[in-house]
Simulated assay, not measured.
Amino acid sequence: MSNLSDDTLRKILQQIQTQAITSQRQLQMVKAQIGSKEKERKILELTMRELATIPGDDTKMYRGVGKMFIAQPRAEITSKHTAQEKALGEDVSNLTKKAKYFEKQMDEANGQLRDIFRSQQRAQQQQ
């Protein structure tokens, strides 16, 4: 690394630093999305738990649609909630994989920066 010119070294450092910053921002966004999906999942679980406490299959149930409510059978509402819960679980799983990828990318960039600085320090000490 010591045989690189200052301009080349500076460009490499800027690229690696840009990559680290970009990965960190993307990681923060993904973590925010995970938090949002987890919140939605908890609300859905609470709703399903409350619906389970209502006795009888013939009880009238309504689903909110915008500013209106539509009467629907209990089985249909339950199946929609179950499907929504499954989709949220898959979303959280995919976002977690993305977060791990960005963490790895950020760690690699930081490791490269450390290696460059160490090699430059060694080169300076040898001179």
Rank of each mutant, 00 (worst) to 15 (best):
M1L: 10
S2H: 09
N3V: 07
N3Y: 06
L4K: 02
L4F: 09
L4S: 06
S5G: 15
D7I: 10
Q15R: 14
Q15H: 07
I16F: 00
I16V: 14
I21S: 14
I21Y: 04
Q26Y: 10
L27H: 02
I34E: 00
R41V: 04
K42Y: 02
K42H: 06
K42I: 07
I43A: 09
I43L: 09
E45M: 11
T47K: 15
M48Y: 02
M48F: 03
L51V: 07
T53Y: 01
T53G: 03
I54T: 10
I54C: 06
P55S: 11
P55N: 12
G56I: 08
G56A: 11
G56L: 07
K60W: 03
K60C: 04
K60L: 08
M61D: 00
Y62I: 06
V65T: 15
G66E: 03
G66Q: 02
K67C: 04
M68F: 05
F69V: 14
F69A: 15
A71L: 06
Q72S: 06
P73N: 15
P73F: 02
R74A: 04
A75H: 10
E76W: 07
E76F: 09
E76M: 12
E76H: 15
E76G: 13
T78F: 05
T78P: 04
K80Q: 13
H81E: 13
H81N: 15
H81I: 03
T82G: 02
A83S: 12
A83F: 07
E85Q: 14
K86T: 13
K86F: 03
A87K: 12
V92Y: 01
N94C: 05
N94K: 09
K97A: 11
A99H: 01
K100C: 08
F102S: 01
F102K: 00
K104A: 13
Q105K: 04
M106Y: 04
A109T: 02
N110F: 02
Q112S: 13
L113S: 11
R114I: 09
R114N: 13
D115Y: 05
F117N: 11
F117E: 12
F117S: 11
Q120K: 15
Q121D: 10
Q121F: 13
R122D: 06
R122L: 11
Q125E: 06
Q126P: 05
Q126S: 10
